[in-house]
């Protein structure tokens, strides 16, 4: 079953600035009132990398990670589902999903994944 993308962004009620992750005061106007916003639609890949020297907790050979912007302008980091950076390009469309991104203390940790849309 597909899981809902459990990311919440915060839109400043005073000036409209969109934040992710959470800040206690708006990065533009310092207001403390936010409307909670959910990411919508597909996303556009803004930048990416392939990491070959992984941190403790990851035992695969490499990991593709990028930052993408959703249709409603929320920007977030996620793992990328592809075989290599050769399949990626800045500006390409990616399909977001909420899936296991690592295992911690024997449990799956869920997070954002992006899959290139051909």
């Amino acid at each position: 079953m597909k899981k809902e993308i459990a990311i919440t962004a915060y839109k400043c009620k005073k000036c409209g600035k969109l934040h992710y992750p959470y800040h206690d005061r708006c990065l533009a106007c310092k207001s403390r009132e936010f409307e909670q916003i959910k990411p919508q639609g597909n996303a556009k890949l803004l930048t990416y990398t392939a990491i070959f020297n992984l941190p403790w907790g990851f035992d695969q050979r490499f990991l593709l990670i990028g930052v993408a912007e959703f249709e409603n302008k929320i920007k977030a980091m996620g793992q990328i589902k592809a075989d290599s950076v050769d399949q990626l390009k800045v500006g390409m469309k990616v399909k977001p999903s909420w899936e296991p991104i690592r295992v911690q203390y024997g449990e799956d940790v869920y997070g954002l994944k992006f899959e290139p849309i051909p």
Binding site: Y20, P21, L46, T47, Y48, T49, A50, I51, N53, L54, P55, G57, F58, L63, I65, G66, V67, A76, M77, G78, Q79, V90, I101, R102, V109, G111, L112
Partner: peptide, 25 residues
């Protein structure tokens, strides 16, 4: 960032890689 970055397996070299790609472009 403990929620928005760290869990994904991002590293400082990884941050630098993403920054380099943008700087090159």
């Amino acid at each position: 960032h403990p929620q928005a970055e760290y869990p994904y397996g991002i590293t400082l070299p990884g941050m630098a890689g993403m920054f380099t790609r943008l700087y090159m472009e």
